[in-house]
Amino acid sequence: MKKQLLGLFATVSLLAACGNGAGNEVGTDEAVNPGSAEGLKDSYIVGLDDTFAPMSFRDTDGSIVGFDVDLANEIGEMIGAEFTFQPIDWVMKETELNAGNIDLIWNGYSITDERKEKVAFSDAYLDNKQIIVTLADSDIETKADLEGVVVATQQASATLDALYADETGVVEKFDGGEPILYPTFTDVFNDLDSGRSGAIVVDEVLGRYIMKQKGAENYKVLEENFGEEEYGVGMRKEDVQLQEAINNGLAELRENGKYEEIYETWFAE
């Protein structure tokens, strides 16, 4: 009996040693991957609107490129994670995020109080405003001139939120008592170009870029606007470590000059 007990003890000790060895091996792997070591995943899916130039859009080869794409890829390298860019229905962005179909909303995503109730935001990384754009020969000069005018913007956008948050009451005086809505800002600009709408309200970052591509001389930007805001990265509220990693990455990019380099690539003029 004594020999049997000693044999059993030796077997248990051997198994424990093997278990500890396996644990140490996993620990070594985690140390190699910065993401795993920090409790992060090896890959994340970024949800975006692939028509939102210059933040993220498709180039002539069909590849998704842009300011946000470059920024995300740089931070991905820092934290040892790969970002995959997935076009989504922008109306469903928060639903897609909280359902687990995407991990991040990184696409000129304006920080608003309403959105803070649904998602967690990174630190702000780019300023923006909601500008009013007309054709160059339009008689519209002020917000007040929008009374009786067909005004278009993107559905489920921060621009739309800004319109309804405006306290001047001008939105109720639009033709139809409200703006007409389109799935993308590309559609919104097409509506203005065709003459179906007399004015549009868009993110300045996107609006300036599109006007440059189409010919800035064809458009007029009013001095008044519908508010200033900031862009941030949206994520699930429980993803605290991911939020911290992205914030640290944004700070490091500003310190090492890489942020300015990426900015100049897309906003040089």
Results as ranks from 00 to 15, higher is better:
residue 1 M to E: 04
residue 2 K to E: 12
residue 4 Q to D: 10
residue 5 L to S: 12
residue 6 L to N: 01
residue 7 G to I: 04
residue 7 G to K: 06
residue 12 V to P: 03
residue 13 S to C: 12
residue 17 A to C: 12
residue 18 C to E: 00
residue 20 N to L: 10
residue 24 N to M: 03
residue 31 A to F: 13
residue 32 V to N: 09
residue 32 V to L: 13
residue 32 V to Q: 15
residue 33 N to M: 07
residue 33 N to I: 12
residue 33 N to P: 01
residue 34 P to T: 12
residue 37 A to C: 08
residue 38 E to S: 14
residue 39 G to M: 14
residue 43 S to T: 00
residue 43 S to C: 00
residue 50 D to V: 03
residue 53 A to I: 02
residue 53 A to R: 01
residue 54 P to W: 01
residue 56 S to H: 02
residue 59 D to S: 03
residue 64 I to S: 06
residue 66 G to R: 00
residue 68 D to W: 06
residue 73 N to L: 10
residue 74 E to G: 01
residue 80 G to C: 09
residue 85 F to L: 07
residue 86 Q to W: 02
residue 90 W to T: 12
residue 92 M to D: 15
residue 93 K to Y: 04
residue 95 T to P: 09
residue 97 L to I: 01
residue 98 N to Y: 04
residue 99 A to G: 02
residue 100 G to V: 09
residue 105 I to T: 06
residue 112 T to S: 10
residue 115 R to G: 14
residue 117 E to I: 03
residue 118 K to T: 08
residue 120 A to P: 14
residue 122 S to I: 05
residue 124 A to F: 08
residue 125 Y to S: 07
residue 127 D to A: 13
residue 127 D to F: 05
residue 130 Q to C: 10
residue 134 T to I: 04
residue 137 D to T: 04
residue 137 D to M: 00
residue 138 S to E: 14
residue 138 S to Y: 06
residue 142 T to G: 06
residue 143 K to S: 10
residue 147 E to G: 04
residue 149 V to K: 09
residue 149 V to Q: 14
residue 149 V to S: 01
residue 150 V to H: 12
residue 159 T to R: 00
residue 160 L to Y: 13
residue 160 L to K: 05
residue 164 Y to N: 11
residue 165 A to W: 08
residue 168 T to I: 02
residue 169 G to Q: 10
residue 169 G to M: 09
residue 171 V to G: 07
residue 173 K to W: 14
residue 174 F to C: 12
residue 176 G to H: 14
residue 176 G to N: 03
residue 178 E to F: 03
residue 179 P to Y: 13
residue 181 L to R: 06
residue 182 Y to C: 01
residue 182 Y to K: 03
residue 184 T to V: 02
residue 184 T to H: 06
residue 184 T to L: 09
residue 185 F to Y: 06
residue 192 L to S: 14
residue 193 D to R: 00
residue 194 S to G: 03
residue 198 G to R: 05
residue 198 G to E: 15
residue 199 A to R: 03
residue 199 A to V: 00
residue 200 I to N: 12
residue 203 D to K: 00
residue 211 M to G: 12
residue 212 K to N: 15
residue 213 Q to Y: 01
residue 220 K to T: 12
residue 221 V to R: 13
residue 222 L to N: 04
residue 226 F to I: 06
residue 226 F to D: 15
residue 227 G to I: 03
residue 230 E to W: 05
residue 231 Y to G: 03
residue 231 Y to K: 05
residue 236 R to L: 07
residue 236 R to D: 13
residue 237 K to G: 07
residue 241 Q to Y: 06
residue 242 L to M: 09
residue 244 E to S: 13
residue 251 A to T: 13
residue 256 N to P: 01
residue 258 K to C: 01
residue 262 I to Q: 08
residue 264 E to Y: 00
residue 264 E to G: 00
residue 267 F to K: 04
